[in-house]
Amino acid sequence: MSSFQPWIKRYSGAGGGAALVFPHAGGAALAYRALGAALAAGGSDTYVMQYPQRGDRLTHPAPETVGDLAADLFDGGDWAGLGPLRLFGHCMGAVVAFEFARVAESKGIAVDSLWVSASEAPSTVAAAPALPMAEAEIIAEMVDLGGTDPQLLADDDFVELLLLAVRADYAAFNRYACDEGVRIAADIHTLGGDADHRVNENMLRRWETHTTGAFTVSMFDGGHFYINEHIAEVAELVHAL
């Protein structure tokens, strides 16, 4: 019997440790296939998370909070046997990864580093405007952020499934709060796009308060989904530090 749920997508690497990837709000594991493969090619076994309410977890209940989602993902695998973990999260996925790190560290599982991509710091989420829940506003949000093929947004069946996933994630995120003094021992490395109109470098730097370890900021050309054009460079950076 496998020690990992089938909805955790694994990409085999030849090195030690493991990299875990946490998608953005509404994102499916399939969208991170290229990053998963690139991280695995760099050496680490890579595991891409699948959140409830999409893909092969379509019928799984939506989590109440980001903390509940992180706990659900943690329970999906035997992480203790993998060696030091490297966590990578994009946008909301970075906050999910942060909460996952808190769970892992509380259970004595070593987390080497948290890689934060295009995300506001946990302690700033509660004060930010609530994410939209109405269909028209969610679609407008997807268009504004980029990262979703406009042709897909014209497909009613796709939009129906997208709304299910986004609403589940947005609701959990809107209920999230974290004090500025909450810290993890893992190093935090932040990444962002220099043309991202949602998350700028100053916002990324707010993550420094959430680690007792090392902290770095790296900026790339591009917007909120800069990562789509820099997969190889991001994977190389994750393995270099």
Rank of each mutant, 00 (worst) to 15 (best):
E180W: 15
A140V: 10
I188Q: 00
F4C: 07
H197T: 15
F158S: 07
C91M: 08
R86Q: 09
L85F: 00
E99R: 07
D169I: 12
Q151R: 12
D196N: 06
A195M: 12
V166I: 08
A62F: 01
A130E: 08
N228H: 15
I188K: 00
E201L: 11
A165Q: 00
M142D: 03
P23M: 03
G81N: 13
A121V: 01
M142I: 10
V96P: 11
A127C: 05
R175I: 14
R167G: 02
A97P: 13
L152Q: 08
F173R: 07
A240S: 15
A136S: 15
P52G: 09
V21G: 06
E64V: 10
H90E: 03
S2H: 05
G213F: 04
L69E: 14
A29N: 10
G223M: 04
A136R: 12
A80E: 09
V199S: 06
A121W: 10
D112L: 09
D169V: 07
T190W: 02
E208R: 13
D194N: 13
G55F: 00
Y170V: 04
G146V: 01
M219I: 00
H210E: 06
E141I: 11
L82Q: 00
A186M: 03
F22P: 02
Y47K: 04
V116H: 13
F158W: 01
C91S: 15
P84Y: 02
A195E: 13
P122G: 01
H24L: 05
T46L: 06
A177V: 13
V116I: 12
D78R: 05
S117D: 07
F88M: 14
V234N: 02
D221T: 01
T124M: 11
I139F: 02
A235C: 12
E99P: 12
P63D: 02
D144L: 13
A28W: 00
T59M: 05
H24N: 09
Y176Q: 01
G67D: 14
L152E: 09
V103T: 07
G192S: 03
P150E: 03
A71N: 08
T148N: 07
G16N: 09
I139H: 08
K107N: 06
H90A: 08
L69N: 14
Y226A: 06
G193Q: 03
S12L: 11
A171L: 04
H224S: 11
V66T: 06
E137W: 03
E99G: 10
H239T: 05
D194F: 09
A14P: 07
F74S: 09
M1N: 13
D68R: 04
A195K: 09
G81L: 11
A186Q: 03
G213T: 07
P6Y: 00
